[in-house]
Design a protein around this nucleic acid. Structure first.
Length: 513
RNA sequence: GCUCUUAUAGCUCAGUCGGUAGAGCGUUACCUUGGUAAGGUAGAGGUCACGGGUUCGAUUCCCGUUAAGAGCUCCA
């Protein structure tokens, strides 16, 4: 017998080898119908897996996000099965659940059309009606490779699994897919689904790889839930800033002016004016000093900052390097300009911290597919600050910045709608990041300490840092559920060095801020 | 940059199976009203994004350009 501790603390005993789903049925039939998977101690398991030891037994239902993800993952297999039936020459790649449904990436010659969506949905309906049992099996590496030998994508996935990894497959009818699971135990549970869109996506997320065809879809255990979802989505789209902005005459665009260059109409300009005054006044109250710096500079400045070497393609360059002595570039950021103000006079340790702020208009030559509404542009204006601090002031100043951010978000009423992301470097990506492991570690530890002290509820993200330092990113979801960074605070341990910034310490020695 | 989609009145959209166009909102004038984003009447407003091709004829079909949308990649 195995002793299982349930969520409410009670214990039930079951025979060794009892299936998870049968354990749940003992608790309640209704609960069993609504079960997506089981958490046994820390392990997420299929409902069909057998109980073999004592432990904590938690039922994860379709009503909770983790359960819905299992549901969507199973849905993605049904989508893949339907596509395989209709397009036998397709190669399957991956098909995970997302926060907002699921997708599956296919390597297929033709592109999916709207008519294909209908056909695929019809085929999915059939698969659901067939009530196919979903079964799990494992294979040793050699056999697993044999199983997927005609699919180079799956071969690649298996070859990248660690040596001791369990290689598992799920089977429903004649359809088999390499998959870590977990899954529901039958296709019959997927009552309502809809293919939302077809887009391109690079294999493994790298533009160097082949572009695959991705189908985005959504599914629910009940038909009315799908209807609700669609209605909600339509309502959300009506609140798209891009649509409202034009309807309310806040901004417009003109073909002749160009991509990523919106025109703020009187209503929009007034909003920006009020925000700008408000922000600058509040910053002044908090000890910031305002600067006004040029919109462009000679390339010499960007060579010093490293942007000429790293981000030349992203800048608008004025003049031809080959023909002219002086070449300028529109500024893509304000840091080096404000640093020049810092360097204009000798600073004492008593002068720090110095808090520079500027309502900065910046120019970035974004790729043509990137521009959108007012959120990603070639010319944009943001409220920007650079704090030059001593090491012993870092924590307090960081807190001050976070406090300012809280104040601003509260004023705008968005403080409950954001999430926090602690963006760290990727030590394996030497091209993107400055190769200074010790400096990274120290800066990231410093930032983590501060974030923890502030009790900020953040997620950590590897490979999202700036090239010169870690960031606290404040993320906001748009009406499509896509996250944008609306505010970012960064600890920069490199540019002070590059710009040879220093202050005279109390002992008369030069120190780096 | 890549995949897919779109471009008709100021905005949101219909429409023309190829014979040069319509609605709602907005707007203008007048009337009315303590109907306050929602009254009535009349009107203005469109080379159907731009360039080329096919055709007797293109806003409609095809190609290209530009712009807009979703996704991917990128985001100093």
């Amino acid at each position: 017998m195995c002793k299982l501790e349930l969520k409410d603390g009670s214990i039930i005993e079951v025979e060794k080898g009892t299936k998870n789903i049968d354990v749940v049925k003992k608790i309640s039939e209704g609960l069993a119908r609504n079960t997506a998977c089981i958490q046994f101690n820390d392990e997420i398991q299929d409902v069909q897996k057998e109980v073999n030891a004592d432990g904590k037994f938690t039922v994860i239902t379709l009503d909770e996000p983790a359960g819905l993800k299992v549901f969507w993952h199973t849905s993605s297999h049904i989508l893949a099965q339907a596509v395989t039936r209709l397009f036998p020459d397709v190669l399957l790649t991956i098909g995970p659940a997302t926060d907002n449904g699921f997708y599956y990436d296919f390597d297929i010659k033709q592109n999916f059309t709207e008519e294909d969506f209908i056909k695929i949905e019809e085929e999915m309906k059939k698969i659901v009606k067939e009530e196919l049992a979903i079964t799990y099996f494992e294979l040793p590496r050699e056999e697993a490779l044999k199983q997927v030998k005609d699919n180079p994508y799956k071969v690649e996935l298996i070859n990248e699994l660690p040596k001791d990894a369990v290689i598992s497959f799920y089977k429903q009818g004649d359809f088999v897919d390499l998959c870590a699971g977990p899954h529901l135990n039958n296709t019959k549970h997927i009552k309502a689904f809809k293919i939302m869109s077809s887009t391109g996506a690079y294999w493994r997320g790298s533009e160097k790889n082949k572009m695959l065809n991705r189908l985005y879809a959504i599914s629910f255990p009940k038909a009315n839930m799908l209807e609700e979802y669609i209605t909600k989505r339509e309502e959300a789209l009506k609140r798209d800033h891009n649509r409202l902005g034009r309807e309310l005459e806040i901004f417009t665009t003109a073909e002749q002016i160009g991509q990523g260059l919106p025109l703020l109409m009187p209503n929009g300009a007034r909003i920006v004016q009020l925000l700008e005054r408000f922000v600058e006044d509040e910053e002044q109250r908090r000890g910031y000093v305002l600067t006004k710096t040029p919109f462009m500079a000679k390339k010499d400045l960007y060579e010093l900052s490293g942007h000429w070497q790293h981000y030349k393609d992203g800048m608008f360059i004025l003049g031809d390097e080959q023909k002219e002595d002086e070449v300028f570039a529109l500024r893509p950021m304000t840091c080096p300009f404000q640093f020049m103000i810092y360097k204009a006079s000798q600073k004492s340790y008593k002068d720090l911290p110095i808090r520079y702020n500027e309502t900065s208009t910046l120019f970035r030559n974004e790729s043509s597919g990137e521009m959108h509404g007012l959120t990603r542009l070639r010319q944009f204006t943001l409220s920007e600050g650079h704090l030059v601090v001593r090491k012993d002031q870092l924590e307090e100043e960081f807190r001050g910045v976070v406090d300012l951010i809280y104040f601003m978000m509260k004023t705008l009423g968005i403080e409950k709608d954001v999430t926090y992301r602690f963006s760290k470097w990727d030590p394996n990506n030497k091209e993107k990041y400055l190769d200074m492991p010790e400096a990274w570690e120290s800066a990231e530890n410093e930032m983590r300490k501060i974030l923890d002290a502030l009790k900020i509820n953040y997620i950590e993200a590897v490979g999202e840092a700036a090239f010169y330092g870690p960031k606290l990113d404040i993320q906001f979801k748009n009406v499509h559920g896509k996250e944008d960074t609306i505010i970012t605070v960064q600890i920069d341990f490199a540019l002070a060095e590059k710009f040879d910034m220093y202050y005279m310490d109390s002992d008369g020695s030069k120190k780096r801020p």
